[in-house]
Amino acid sequence: MEFVQAPGLPPPAGHYSQAVVTRGGMVYVSGVLPARDLADNAFDAQCASVFAQCEQVLRAAGCGLDDVVQCTAYLAGVEHWPAFNTVYAGMFGDHRPARAVVPVPALHYGFLVEVQLVAERANG
Rank of each mutant, 00 (worst) to 15 (best):
Q70G: 01
L107W: 01
C71Q: 13
V29D: 00
P103I: 12
R121A: 04
A45F: 01
D44L: 08
Y16Q: 02
A119S: 06
A83L: 07
Y109P: 00
S17H: 12
L112P: 04
P11M: 03
R99G: 03
G31R: 12
Q53R: 15
L117I: 01
L112H: 09
F3R: 14
M91A: 15
R121M: 04
V69M: 07
L38C: 03
Y88M: 08
D94K: 13
D94Q: 14
A73P: 07
A89K: 13
C47R: 14
A76F: 01
V78M: 00
Q53E: 11
G93F: 04
L75E: 02
A76E: 00
T72Q: 10
H95S: 10
Y109K: 12
V68E: 06
N85R: 14
E2Q: 15
G77H: 09
F84H: 01
R121L: 00
A100F: 02
N123G: 06
E79L: 05
V69H: 00
D66F: 02
A52E: 15
D67T: 04
V115G: 04
T86N: 07
P10A: 12
N123S: 15
P7S: 12
G77P: 05
G93T: 13
A73W: 00
T22G: 13
G93Y: 07
V32D: 02
L9G: 09
